[in-house]
Amino acid sequence: MAHLVIESLTKIYERGKVRALTDVSFEVERGEFLVLIGLSGSGKSTLLRCVNRLVEPTTGRVVLDGVDVTRLSPRALRRTRRKIGMVFQQFNLVKRSSVLANVLTGRLGYVPTWRALLGRFPKEDLERARRALSRVGLLEKMYARADELSGGQQQRVGIARALMQEPELLLADEPVSALDPATSHSIMQYLEQMNREDGVTVLASLHFLSLARRYGTRIIALKDGRIVFDGPPGAIDNAKFKEIYGEDAEEVEVR
């Protein structure tokens, strides 16, 4: 059984009556590194957010491990969300809080509410936080304020936060778009490591086709909210590229 099944997913934003997604369907096997590509506004972010219902789909189903996520009660949804890690383009850390506090929020789905509200995380979670931070090489920054860190370091904190959830699925919404090329590769390698060593299924949206080719095991391209390509990275030739990005586009490489 596929790990994640997306069935004829459609999202229409009420206000502007914008169709962000139109009848999108695909399946993801466990352990895949699936990269979503497409122009800005093609629906990549909306698609990712429909998976953990940060955005409510208008119609269609999202089935994770045989469970229809779109039908879950609020409580059951929170239990499902804790198995889905997410990293963001703008990192989305609480800037005034410490690195440790940010990383610990990854355990909020597991810790009883009263403990969380008092800030009394169990000892194991503190130990887990240390392990997550040393894995991304930021153990010495544990007590620094999040906004004292560089962009790349902040994204590593975001990854550590996701690691705390011990996720089975990782959603990465343009995780390297705000970073320079060298840092981008370092971040992508952390995601690759999670995918290969921990067996986490990864769904990442990326701007650069070169990054998608280098890290993805499969690529889905969106255009105006519809799937226009679904296949292995090698199958995107020049004609396909023009179809996805438009006639005038030139491929830019990130080395």
């Binding site: 953990n52 940060l54 929170r78 239990r79 499902t80 969300r81 804790r82 889905i84 890690g85 997410m86 963001f88 703008q90 990192f91 989305n92 850390l93 609480v94 800037k95 929020t105 990854g106 355990r107 909020l108 789905g109 597991y110 509410t113 969380a116 509200l117 975001g158 936060r161 705390m164 959830q165 959603l171």
Partner: peptide, 15 residues
């Protein structure tokens, strides 16, 4: 952003 990120971890509204 942080509200979105913490919600995504499975935290409750109060959390």
């Amino acid at each position: 952003g942080p509200v979105e990120a913490v919600t995504a971890t499975g935290a409750s509204r109060l959390e």
